[in-house]
Each structure stands twice: as structure tokens, then as C-alpha cells.
Computed example of a mutant assay.
Amino acid sequence: MPDSQITKSFSAASITQEAASALIVAASTAARDIGIDVTIAVTDNAGHLKAFERADSAAFLTVDVAIDKAWTAASFGLPTHTWTAIISNDVVAQLAHRPRLVAVGGGCPIIDNGKVIGGIGISGGNALQDQQAAEIALRALGFEIKA
């Protein structure tokens, strides 16, 4: 195939700084309403940190966990709570050894018009509370929720 007929690039949608910051505010409000002190991380479509906030009383370990939850969610476009079932399959069990993979609730892909544009990760409550806060924030901004 001649070089002139090769597609050399493609456009990839990614979350804006404005939307990432708005998600931080919405997630912080949701966490406060649930009654938990959390760390919130938002990544772009490639898993790079875009926005971040840690409540004064959130434990220091929540920093890395929130960032890694957002990274995990953005990586395959799957919520982190689904990973426990995925890695229980012997065929893909080795993925559990990936250093940043988090297989508990609280990380959700950020989906706009069917495309993963980033990930949000919340850490500080139990896994269900973290997941609920993330989903509430995504709904508040009109993003799609993947079950």
C-alpha cells in the first residue's frame, strides 16, 4: 500500500479542564452528602491526571488509590467495581498484578457521546460509597454511566 493511502492519525476525544474541575466540585458535594471525606481524581482519556482534590481529613493512602481508580476506569472504559469478576477468570487473572489496577468500587469511566474521555476515581469511604459519589457526580454533569 503506498504511503499516501495510509491513515496516519486519528482524533481522540478527551475531557476538558473545565469539565474535570466541575466533576471535582460535583463529586465533593456528593461525598459530603453521603457523609464521607474523600480524595477525588480525574484523568484524561490516556489516564493522565487532569484534576485532583483531597479533603483535609482524607487519609493519605486515598491519594494514590483515587488516582489509580481513575486510571483503571479510563484504561478499558470499565468501572473499577467490575474488575473483581474480570480478574477471577483464569485467562486474565494476571491483570491483577498490574501495579495500578484497582478492582474495587469508586472508579468510573467518563463517557461522552459513547466515547471514553477520561476516568474519575474516589477514595475515602467504603467501595460502594465511593462508587455512588462518582456516579452522582457523572450524572450531575450529564455523562453516561456504565454499569
Rank of each mutant, 00 (worst) to 15 (best):
D3H: 02
S4N: 11
I6N: 07
T7D: 14
T7S: 12
T7Y: 03
K8G: 14
K8A: 10
K8N: 11
F10Q: 09
A12P: 00
A12V: 08
A12L: 03
S14W: 00
Q17I: 03
A22D: 15
I24T: 09
I24G: 09
V25T: 11
A27S: 12
A27N: 06
S28W: 00
G35A: 01
G35F: 01
D37I: 02
I40C: 10
I40R: 07
I40S: 05
V42C: 15
T43Y: 08
D44R: 05
L49S: 13
K50E: 15
A51Q: 12
R54Q: 14
R54N: 13
A58I: 08
A58L: 10
F60D: 01
F60Y: 08
F60M: 06
L61F: 06
V63L: 04
V63C: 01
A66R: 03
I67E: 05
I67S: 01
W71M: 13
W71N: 06
W71C: 02
T72W: 12
A73P: 11
A74S: 12
F76G: 08
L78Q: 11
P79L: 11
P79G: 13
H81C: 02
H81Q: 09
H81D: 04
T84L: 15
A85M: 13
I87H: 04
S88V: 03
N89D: 10
V91K: 08
A93I: 00
Q94H: 02
Q94A: 10
L95Q: 04
A96W: 00
A96K: 06
R98I: 15
P99S: 15
L101S: 03
L101R: 04
V102L: 15
V102C: 08
G105F: 11
G105N: 12
G106L: 07
G107R: 02
G107I: 02
P109S: 14
P109H: 10
P109A: 13
P109D: 15
I111E: 07
I111P: 07
D112F: 12
D112Y: 13
N113A: 06
G114W: 03
K115F: 00
V116N: 13
I117M: 07
G118D: 06
G118C: 07
I120M: 14
I120S: 10
G121D: 06
I122H: 06
S123P: 05
S123W: 05
G124I: 02
G124W: 02
G125T: 05
G125D: 06
N126T: 08
A127R: 05
Q131L: 13
E135T: 08
A137T: 04
A137W: 01
L138T: 04
R139K: 15
R139S: 09
E144A: 00
K146N: 11
